[in-house]
Structure formats: C-alpha cells, structure tokens
C-alpha cells in the first residue's frame, strides 16, 4: 500500500510535507501501559488532503498530536517539511477534538487569540476573522461567550481559530463531530473550497465515511488496537468536488463501501 504514496507524477520532486516513519506511542502510567498507536507509516504530499478513519480509541488523535509535536513518539519519528519534529510546532493549524476554547473570551476573542499569540498584524487579523466568521455561519455570535454557544458552534469557532493564520498544514481532529448533518455538509463544502484555494495540506480525522471520501484525496483506514494503517485508498475524483455530484459518483461509492467493509460495517459488503 505504501507504493501509493510513492507514485511519481503529482509531486515527483517535491518533498513530502508530513512523513511519519514507524511511529508508535505507548502511554505509561503507574497502573498500566497503554499502546495508543501501533506502528504507523504515512507520507503526505504538499496540498494533499488525507482523511483518517478508524474505530474509536485506535489512536487517531494521538497520531495527530505526534505530528504536531505535542506527544513524543515512543518509537519512530515524524518529519514536517523535512525537519524532525522534536517539540510543539507553531507552523501548523490544529483543530482539537474538543473545542478547547478559553471561557473568558468571546467567540471572536478566541479566534483572535491565534493572532495575538503570534503577534500578527491586528487589523489584518480582524478582517480575516470577520471573513471566517461569515463563512462558518457564526455571524451575530462574535461577542457571545463560549458557554452561550452550542457544541457545534464552539467547534466552528475552534476551526476559525486554526485557519486564522493561514497555515499550510492543517491537522483536524473530528472538527465537525458536533454538527447537524446539513451544517456539516455545508462546512465540508466550505472547508474543501478554503483548503483547495490556499493549497493547504490537510490531515483530517473523522468518523464519517462520506465526509472522509468527499474531502479526501486519500482515505487512510486504521485498524483496532494495536492500531496500524490497514489500507490507504486513493479517491479518484477532481480536487474540487460538487457535493451532490460527488455523492452520486460511482468512484465515491466504490471507495466509501470499501472503507465501510474495512471498518467492519454491516452495510459495507459489496
């Protein structure tokens, strides 16, 4: 399966933006040691959108944190733009599984935290923030405190925060988990537009098979613990996809049902 990522063509000479080599993570506590991640290899090319799916608890969040330098791998190493990741990396955008908002800041204040921490130009950051609020449908809630927002709205705030500094690598951990189906579809379309326009490289963890296939150039399926990459599937659709058309495309169905089979879903078999 690794041959997939080494295919010549798309970016023959360009280096992989993210390369994960033999990474495994074991958490040790006084009571037990948990193997959170088996041995994982993964290579992501510039501008590629990779969806990661797998059963709950298989280490998807852990994998993203290793890539961001937030968790040190027990074995193996990660390279981001060629340099070995040795600590938290500021040259990325990260959307956490939980929104992780600061309770004392408004929605807007939480988004702008990114700008303040990075010392970005305040006026430009405000403009970008207003745009993001508009695209994510948060207009009217700029001044709302996190506890006044629904779970899905909090996630959208956290997404805006991760996009504010226009990172060219975006790591997203179930960013749309708390959204209703329709908002989720709309956010998928927006995310695709934003990412493709800016040529962002994305690693997206999701539990939704349609989301993984609609957004991904590639879908990485992970197995239950001790987790490994079970299979990588290329999605042969154009980079920018019309939602309804993609849903009806035979390629979409081929990949989606294969993913379902791999995940052991009863509707998966074909």
């Amino acid at each position: 399966m690794t041959t997939l990522t080494e295919e010549p063509g798309v970016a023959g000479t360009a280096q992989d933006v993210v390369s994960v080599d033999g990474v495994s993570v074991t958490f040790r506590s006084k009571r037990a040691s948990t193997s959170a991640l088996g041995e994982v290899d993964l290579a992501v090319r510039p501008g590629e959108f990779v969806s990661i799916v797998g059963p709950s608890g298989c280490g998807k969040s852990t994998l993203l944190k290793v890539v961001a330098g937030l968790v040190a791998p027990t074995t193996g190493q990660v390279r981001l733009r060629g340099d070995v990741v040795a600590g938290p990396r500021p040259d990325i955008g990260f959307v956490f599984q939980r929104a992780a908002l600061l309770d004392w800041r408004t929605a807007e204040g939480n988004i702008l935290l990114q700008a303040e921490m990075r010392g970005m130009d305040a006026a430009a950051a405000r403009r970008r923030c207003a745009e993001l609020i508009e695209t994510t449908g948060l207009s009217g809630f700029e001044k709302a405190m996190p506890h006044e927002l629904s779970g899905g709205m909090q996630q959208r705030v956290s997404l805006c925060r991760a996009l504010l500094h226009e990172p060219d690598v975006l790591l997203m951990d179930e960013p749309f988990g708390a959204l209703d189906a329709l908002t989720r579809e709309r956010m998928n379309v927006e995310l695709q537009r934003v990412c493709r326009e800016a040529g962002v490289t994305v690693l997206l963890v999701t539990h939704s098979v349609p989301e993984a296939v609609y957004l991904g150039d590639r879908v990485v399926v992970m197995g239950p613990r001790p987790s490994r990459v079970v299979e990588e599937l290329r999605v042969d659709l154009p980079p920018v996809r019309d939602y309804t058309a993609a849903m009806e495309d035979p390629e979409f169905h081929r990949v989606a049902s294969r993913v379902r089979t791999l995940l052991g879903s009863p509707q998966g078999g074909d």
């Binding site: 937030l70 500021p90 955008g93 992780a100 935290l113 921490m117 990075r118």
Partner: peptide, 14 residues
Amino acid sequence: VDPEVIELTSTMGA
C-alpha cells in the same frame, strides 16, 4: 488549566 488548552497555545509559538 485544561491541558488541551496548553497544548493549543504551544502550537501558536508564543
């Protein structure tokens, strides 16, 4: 302080 919030700020390079 929420450990995830600390992780978040460490990705902001401040």
